[in-house]
Every structure is written in C-alpha cells, then in structure tokens.
C-alpha cells in the first residue's frame, strides 16, 4: 500500500553513506512487510539495495547470506553435493505463508528481523548454527547466533539504527544429516510448529524448535536420545509460557505437535541412512 508519510528515500551506496539514524527512519530491504501495513510513524526509508551486497558467497568455511538476499535467490542456490542438509533450504522457503511471488522480493534478513515465531528463515538459520553480523549505528559491529538474536514474538536484539548485514552458516552444519517437520492448521498455512533436527558426524543431535515457540529454542544432545529422554528434555527445557498463542494455533496444541514432530525427527534420524 502507499506509505503516504514517507517524504524521502535515502539510497546509500556504501556503509559510510548510511545516513544518521533518526526517529521516523526504517531500513528498506524487500519491503514486502513494510508496504503491507500502514507505517504512519515513518517518514524516511533507507534503501539497502544500492549497497549491492553479494547475495550469497560460499567460502572455505561458510555460506554467507547477505541480509538483502531474497528468498528466491537462496532457494535457487546450487548446493555442493556434500551439503546433505541442503534440502532444508527448499523446505524452509516453502514454509512461508507468503506466495512464491513474494519470495522474489522478500529477503532473508527481513524475515529474521521481523522475528515472527513462524519466520522460516529463522528456523533455517538457527538450525544450521547461523551467526548474524550486526552493523551498529556507531560504526562498530558484532556477531551473535541467530537463535539468540531473536528473543520473542517480533522482538530481537537490534537497537535503534542497528542493521543486520549478513548471516554466516558454517559449512559443517550443512554437512549434517537433517530432518524437517512442519505443521499448520490449514494446508500451506502459517507454520504452527516447525522443527528441524540435525545429526553431526559424532552422533550429536541438535533439535531446533520454532514457530510453536515465541523464539527459537535449541536443544542439544551428545547422542541421539531415547523417546522418553527426548520428551522429558522438551518438557523441561521449554517452559509452557514460551509456546506461542494466536489464531494459528493454541499453545497446548503447539506443545503437543512439538513433542510429536520431535519424536518423528528422532525416529527418522535413528535409522541409518
């Protein structure tokens, strides 16, 4: 929709050109959320497009995803054959409530910074041990795991004027076995629970719970746990208050699905491929 209070679009080309952050500013990445609701408190959009961050870079150790990388670009990434966790990328892209048409514009960074419980890029990046690089408004920067960056429903650690630059995913994480499970109240609806389990070479299980909880919760096990051990770990480590409540699912049902999907993941990973 038209954002009629916007008076200016800033289009910096370099970090040095980023304007001084003032009240009424917003970063513009894809814009698919920004333009979907009235934003009468805003008067300037700072467009990140002309910074021309390379969408995806594969180095020796990391897959670097620019915050401005679109969902469609990530989905189209040609993955190395030994990235056996790569199917998670497509699975998480398809877990968007939004149409594939929105993926062409919506960005990975935008989804993470929205910090909705059902944000599938949060699920993906958390499960694969992604680390955010944050550009601080004062010119410094710091790094923080995605799973710690999102702290609640539409809440994260970004301070005013901070900017998410990129997410680095260790290639070791992409080489782990993985299992994906997701459920919604309606077919192709908004995720009510999205769980990802990964198993590393030493047999350690990492279980990432998203969508059913207001923030990503990661559970680690040195070995693949038994059915009961997994269940009690979830019950102990995810307090009831952390389960999300909205029209897309009640907390009790979300917890039930979390336990069920976790067990499905455990059983699947228990079978030797």
């Amino acid at each position: 929709m038209d954002l009629n209070t916007i008076r200016e679009i800033a289009r910096p080309h370099t970090r040095a050109q980023l304007p001084v952050w003032t009240a009424g500013d917003a970063w513009l990445a894809g814009g698919t959320w920004l333009f979907s609701e009235p934003q009468v408190h805003l008067n300037r959009l700072i467009d990140l497009t002309d910074l021309k961050w390379p969408a995806l870079i594969v180095s020796d150790n990391h897959l670097r995803i620019a915050a401005t990388c679109t969902v469609a670009q990530l989905d189209a990434l040609a993955c190395a054959p030994d990235w056996i966790a790569a199917p998670l990328i497509g699975q998480c892209c398809r877990a968007f409530l939004a149409s594939f048409k929105i993926w062409k514009t919506a960005t990975v960074g935008g989804n993470i910074c929205m910090s909705l419980p059902a944000g599938p890029m949060i699920s993906l990046a958390s499960a694969l041990d992604g680390v955010c690089t944050i550009w601080r408004a004062d010119g410094s920067e710091y790094q923080i795991p995605v799973a710690d960056f999102v702290v609640g429903n539409r809440r994260n650690l970004l301070a005013s004027g901070d900017l998410l630059r990129q997410i680095d995913i260790p290639l070791t994480a992409l080489r782990r076995r993985s299992v994906f499970r997701q459920i919604s109240l309606t077919p192709v609806g908004r995720s009510a629970a999205l769980l990802i389990g990964t198993l590393d070479g030493d047999g350690a299980l990492s279980l990432t719970v998203t969508a059913s909880t207001v923030r990503p919760i990661k559970l680690s096990f040195a070995d693949l746990p038994g059915r009961e051990a997994l269940r009690s770990a979830i019950l102990q480590q995810i307090p009831e208050a952390v389960y999300h409540a909205d029209v897309h699912g009640r907390p009790m049902w979300r917890r039930h699905m979390t336990l069920r999907l976790a067990e499905e993941i455990r059983s699947e990973l228990a079978i030797d491929p």
Partner: peptide, 27 residues
C-alpha cells in the same frame, strides 16, 4: 488486500510475477 496477500494486483516485473501493492514504485 493492499498487503501482499490476495494477488489481485499481480503484474509481471521484468517477466516475473509480483504483488505490485508491496513493490516500492521507485524500484
């Protein structure tokens, strides 16, 4: 909807379908 959900405003932008209600016009 004017919010990127319903698709009534779909157009092709350089041949690709997009919801024009959530595309900044200057782009």
């Amino acid at each position: 909807c004017d919010a990127g959900d319903c698709g009534a405003c779909t157009v092709l932008l350089d041949g690709e379908p997009v919801h024009s209600c959530v595309i900044p016009a200057f782009r």
